[in-house]
Write a protein that binds this DNA or RNA. Structure first.
Lengths: 332, 332
DNA sequence: GCCTGACATAACCGAAACCTTATAGCGTTA
DNA sequence: TAACGCTATAAGGTTTCGGTTATGTCAGGC
């Protein structure tokens, strides 16, 4: 290291400053120097100069200037990427220092879809906060898994917890499967299907279904199951992510839906509202897992949280809804 | 990001400077402020002040001062670790810029043991340099795999290529197996064993063996093979990494050794010097692979090199020494 | 052709950053 | 106990950094 470091350090380390990098990030983020200037509460020339300095330092044009603002050149994009990493590394560093000073303090930023936030997460959060009372948990909910992943990539959240597709092929992210969650075809307890002791998927083909939007993890099992029996996937009468909406519709009308075990347990605590239908079809259980950034180890607090979540898997998968998954008996 | 960034940036980003970080790294590296001062060509108080500034900025004692120098506190160690990452990120950034400016230029720093440097590497290097003539390859040889891994961890090299133990459990590193290399028990062509058409491992137990030091990847297969037959591992008369030494001893005396296929091919081009003995024992082939830092993607040049190495696997494993591995015929 | 929005340049200024030399404190060691 | 090695502090000087206001340049919309 020492061999090249001296030379390199003098050429770059002294010229590239954190401030310049930060200005670059702001400019790219806001799309124009003027906007960045107002957001950083400095004058526009200051920004202009900082960017110019940086460009001189690295010897490459970083931004394309136009009358309507700026767009980063490929060079700029690269430096933005690295700049984000640099600042994140720093942030993680001082974060780690604070954690070292008081290992019970810290902050974990979690991203998750509604289904997890309502089902699994509370259990984990409860244990975690009891174990580390001074720890702060920030939970960001997201409508779609895609935007969730972007938040993870942009380092707005430390980890994501949710149902993950398999194989998991998101660029730059890595997933750890916590457990497999059974899926149930569910109708309201008052539904005419609820009384049946046995029924086939084909019988349900014409029903009114509540599904999630296509391309989402939860929507494919239904289509796959129907397809496996040579049936057309059912027509979705309602398409929504909201489990509350679903639950309400199921409980009060004749809708049918596919919901994960944890949701069934949550909404059906007294087991009088919903009923898992004894359909003769096998659904691939849905993997639930934790997604983190590849190429970067999580903060110590995040690691604690992950460990906590992992340690809860056993208690989760021994609940009735999980163990009964293979037999597809009614859960009501 | 913007939510916390403003606040955070003002508190830390403005106080922690790259220079201070760099000073900290140097001080820790050299073990004392005075030494760091001379190495950085500044006066000692400058160093002292920089460290004090940094400590004030992060609000934690980073170094334990003693009359004989300094040792980093846990806080210091953490910040050193992050500091290294920060500088590496920066270096990678400008490196990427240069690569972007001229994708044929660049530098790949490779670490590997002698066996690879002599056997596999030349082939890869030849293709790689032909493909990217302006690329600079730095090859650092290491005696032991352990020190090799340290170089990788310290970011002195971009990647390591060598025989890797399986399972691969090095903390913070990840390995990709390129191919499996057969192992041969070899003696000199003049050896009395060379004339035999068939022989057992037990017959060789009393011979004079050349082995690598214990705990190294290459030494265990021999011990394992003997152990599998209920035999005591042979006594190593010569213990060395040097393949040249080995080859010389094998060719001129009655030594016996275990060498990988690529070495056999290299030293036995005309097939008159060494002879692979037709022993009735199966050796687990040794995986050869590329080790990189986990949690960090390699530089674009390094990626090119890895791709190149990967693409050469096919041509390598179709050479006679490789394909014959299962039958254990003589290779001479 | 004339505004307008957006960035670049110039001139200038204060604060801080960074360096130096000199000196003091303080364990270790001869 | 004196010398030595290492670090901290003080005092003082340059440099440069980060910022301002004022002004220039340039492309496009009306």
């Amino acid at each position: 290291m020492s061999g090249t470091s001296d030379h390199w350090d003098r050429r770059i380390g002294r010229r590239v400053t954190l401030r310049d990098l930060h200005v670059l990030l702001a400019v790219v983020q806001w799309g124009s120097m003027a906007k960045a200037a107002t957001h950083l509460s400095v004058s526009q020339p200051a920004i202009s100069k900082a960017v110019a300095d940086l460009e001189r330092a690295v010897g490459a044009r970083l931004l394309d200037r136009s009358p309507s603002g700026i767009t980063p050149t490929p060079f700029g994009s690269v430096l933005v990427k690295r700049g984000l990493a640099v600042f994140d590394e720093l942030r993680q560093g001082i974060n780690e220092l604070e954690f070292l000073a008081d290992p019970t303090t810290g902050e974990v930023r979690i991203g998750c879809p509604e289904s997890i936030a309502a089902g699994l997460l509370p259990a984990v959060v409860e244990r975690f906060t009891r174990q580390y009372p001074k720890m702060v948990l920030r939970v960001a909910q997201a409508q779609t898994v895609t935007s969730e992943f972007n938040e993870l990539r942009e380092r707005t959240v430390d980890l994501m917890i949710g149902r993950i597709a398999r194989p998991f092929t998101e660029e730059g992210l890595s997933a750890e499967i916590l457990f497999e969650e059974p899926l149930y075809i569910v109708a309201g307890a008052q539904s005419r299907w609820a009384k049946r002791r046995k029924l086939t998927l084909a019988e349900l083909a014409g029903e009114r279904w509540i599904l999630t939007p296509p391309n989402e993890v939860l929507s494919s099992p239904v289509a796959a199951a129907f397809h496996a029996q040579g049936l057309e996937p059912p027509h979705a009468t309602v398409v929504s992510f909201s489990f509350h909406l679903r639950n309400h519709l199921l409980a009060n009308t004749d809708f049918i839906s596919l919901i994960p075990a944890s949701m069934l347990r949550l909404f059906n605590a007294r087991q009088t509202v919903l009923k898992a239908l004894p359909v003769d079809t096998k659904f691939e259980p849905l993997p639930v897992g934790i997604v983190t950034r590849k190429n970067q180890q999580p903060s110590p607090e995040a690691q604690l949280f992950i460990d906590c979540a992992r340690s809860m898997v056993d208690t989760i998968i021994t609940t009735p809804e999980f163990t009964k998954s293979a037999t597809h008996k009614t859960a009501g």
